[in-house]
Amino acid sequence: MAAPDELFCWEGDWGLPSVSTDCLVVLAYAQFAGAPLKLRKICNPWRSPSGSLPALKTNQKETLSRPADIIIHLRKQKFNADYDLSAKEGADSLAFISLMEEKLTPALIYTFWVEPKNYVDVTRRWYAEHMTFPLNFFLPGRMQSRQLEKLRLLRGDESLEAGEELEKELYCDAAECMNLLSQRLGSQKFFFGDSPSSLDAYVFGHLAPILKCKLPNGKLQQHLKSLDNLTNFCSDILLLYFPRDGRESSGPKAPPQPDGGDFDNVPNKRRKQLLSALVALGAMLSYALLTGMVSILHVQQGALEEPPDLEPIESHQHEEQGGS
């Protein structure tokens, strides 16, 4: 209990504390339970101890990466947001979390990673802009193929591709799931009365990205916005538990977003300049080595030791190299 656990998360944007659903779930739960975590918001999954985000590094040097495992760990540390729930309410939580995993997660994967326009215009661009130099070229693509693979396995269809039919099916399931959640929430502030629980964290994590991210194909967002109580539920949690992230976006960040992108790059610019200089230097050196600069070095060394009558041969070599 001495040092706080360290939580590694994706960075936030669009007025959210993090862009990933799983990270949002964990962050929201930690806020609800008041767990003191040392938060590390990063944009490089390779710097996380488990290689994926979110990841919780406990003070016993364990690493947990599934949201459910992290929540169980926090619960064991006496940070329990579900303390007041009755057994039946606990059962209901489990059921609704399953409902979201089965019905909402596939649609989320589809809308952020598979729908071509959304992926190219928003998701890939966001990750490419936020990752550091060499990673931004291949990691977004690799993340996408992993998500597509996951969707294929979830649906049990090996050759699944983006398409109208699939989109309609997935969005239909997701819309039904949102309706059910909305009916369950009713006019309450949180799912089980006045204080938030783990179910609220899961619902928030799944719905907030849909609500806040402006996607070219925004059918899910349209549907969510038609359910007033769920929309208010998400914005209330943002306002109450993540006031800083909420304000950042609503205030100055929204308008200067396009040219703000250039300013964001300034800290990386130095590194990029340095890197490109290094690459250029490396290329020049290797070219020099390949074309035989090494032999000159040898000869120069030799020139100091050898008697002067070898001089003409050496200069001949110089000429040859110059010519070739």
Binding site: D92, L94, A95, F96, S98, L99, E101, E102, K103, E176, N179, L180, L181, Q183, R184, G186
Partner: peptide, 18 residues
């Protein structure tokens, strides 16, 4: 009613999911 139907669907997914 609506809430019961929502709960029924949720529990069905619980069985499928777990």
């Amino acid at each position: 009613d609506d809430v019961q139907r929502a709960e029924m669907k949720a529990y069905m997914e619980l069985v499928n999911n777990m």
